[in-house]
Design a protein around this nucleic acid. Structure first.
Lengths: 119, 119
DNA sequence: CAGCATCCGTTGGGATACTG
DNA sequence: CAGTATCCCAACGGATGCTG
């Protein structure tokens, strides 16, 4: 049943492989965040791009979007159960990457990735 | 150290996220294959595209390319240790995908993915 | 058989401007 | 504050043709 295997893997990869998807999921692992809080933690991401990727993640069931009818508007994003179950997978990718890749020198490191450390 | 975490994850994803990379790795898990054998198992992949993705995987240290000076030419591709250690990760992605995604109906399923079953 | 060079179309990330 | 609507550009997958 190779075909189904590969389809499942590809589907998973397609969901997570957006330029900022992994970063978004990681910052949401800690806690629910507002749009502006996510943006503050990912200073380099474009406003519009962030909205798109959040929409994708919501469509794919990894996060939920809750809108409060306040003024000014407030929107919160939370990991779903599915999203939380991805955490282990992300951790495994991290372990593999740290073990095998030269993260300082290689060209496949994308310096646009920047997350503000917790203050 | 969020930044390093995300960089490692992104680097890993970048390596595996080519359209056919996961499929190539999976068919090579079983055994070393010649270029034409890989192509036979992935009928839908373009000749040139396959060469490119194999080159990427070789550059990133996941497979090794062995050229024999025969006539006609013969080239074999094998998973490296690094590549083999990815297998578990791929399996985990598969499990997650099968558990959470509706692989039949959803639009994120790419029907181009086709692997010939073992005959 | 396996690979390279080249060109092309699509797509996804990004920039800018405007709305409730 | 958060979101929509456009437009733009680079990168990637793919098609074609040629080589040892």
């Amino acid at each position: 049943m190779k075909i189904k295997q590969i389809k499942a893997i590809k589907a998973t990869l397609d969901i997570v492989c957006g330029k900022w998807k992994a970063a978004i999921l990681l910052v949401l692992v800690d806690k629910t965040l507002r749009f502006s809080e996510i943006k503050a933690r990912l200073p380099k991401v474009n406003h519009q791009t962030l909205i798109k990727q959040l929409k994708d993640l919501e469509r794919d069931g990894l996060i939920t979007r809750t809108k409060y009818d306040d003024i000014p508007p407030r929107v919160e994003y939370t990991l779903t159960e599915y999203g939380k179950e991805l955490e282990q997978l992300l951790k495994d990718m991290m372990d593999w990457g740290e073990k095998h890749l030269d993260l300082k020198n290689k060209k496949y490191i994308d310096d646009d990735i920047l997350v503000k450390e917790e203050s």
